[in-house]
Write a protein that binds this DNA or RNA. Structure first.
Lengths: 168, 168
DNA sequence: TATTTACTTAACACAGTGTCAATTGACAGG
DNA sequence: CCTGTCAATTGACACTGTGTTAAGTAAATA
């Protein structure tokens, strides 16, 4: 809070005149970030793809483009969610939205009868959702030093290998 | 620290007579936990498997049996690693060991010429390592409410789908 | 001119980690 | 029995960080 106040050029206490708590400030900051770069809409764009396979790829591509933009905020959310219930809830809601995108892509695939029989649509959604988590992106790009393109390509390849069976 | 002292039936200050800091106590606790249930050795057992495919499956099974035992400690490590460099290092070292196990399984697969051409052994290792992370286990078992067996089966299936190609 | 608004400084409460000094009780050896 | 040592005790303190409160100020607004 001190650092933020310093950056903003106001006193530490003045921050509390605008936001009641650190958690509230963090949540307001995400809303602001969403406003200035219209982020969540980008993920919906993938829904225009017609086949399930395409949809899976476009969704992964969209997510992978979106991730670097929200990574800073995400890290703050992840760090605070253990100590603040409101932050945890806001983060869960956001990740739940993202899961819906996964579910939509998997369901499109199932509708095309191209979903692997090894998984139910729910299981496939859970796996895809987990695979695309911010932590995993962080691990691959930061710890394993993957480039953005490597990440995107590998996630698409992986989703294909696991979930898509050849058309009859 | 207060809670731990209370549980141990000593004063809060007495804990500092044995461990210089919260981080040191946490690290000592893991060593103790390893001693009493000989945990890391379990992961090495998978190395007796002969073929790469078998090795992949036994390693995943071993890791999946090991995970619930260390989950409590792991959570403490993950929560502290942002604020304490010593904790972060200890955790990284441990995860690096686990990564070696992944690499061994992937390399055995590559040796058998059964590794998918979509990935280099390093890439496959990174992906497997990421896929088997504690966070992912937590997400699937806690958030998605998967059973232990479901988790194990899905991870094995996933590794097969992604990494193993049919023998010639 | 009077009021409102946004902000200031300065102080405080509270929780948590880590430190320090003085004290106590038990136990072992001479 | 006395003495030294060891482990633990109580009680105090320093420091960081969040959040609150009170009193005051400077500029815009009515």
């Amino acid at each position: 809070m001190s650092d933020i106040a310093k950056q903003a050029g106001v006193s530490r206490q003045a921050v509390y005149l605008h936001f009641n708590s650190r958690a509230e400030l963090l949540i307001a900051a995400t809303h602001h970030l969403d406003d200035i770069n219209g982020s969540p809409e980008r993920l919906i764009a993938s829904r225009i793809a017609t086949t399930g396979t395409e949809r899976l790829a476009t969704y992964i591509t969209a997510w992978s483009g979106y991730l670097p933009d929200i990574y800073g905020m995400a890290k703050a959310f992840l760090a605070m969610q253990d100590s603040d219930e409101a932050v945890a809830m806001a983060w869960r809601a956001r990740m739940q939205d993202m899961k819906e995108g996964c579910a939509a892509a998997i369901n499109a695939l199932a509708h095309d009868r191209r979903l692997s029989p090894h998984y139910t649509p729910d299981q496939a959604t859970d796996i895809l959702w987990t695979m695309l988590s911010v932590r995993n992106w962080e691990q691959l790009t930061v710890d394993c030093d993957w480039s953005h393109d490597q990440y995107t390509a590998a996630m698409i390849q992986m989703a294909r290998d696991m979930f898509v069976i050849d058309g009859a």
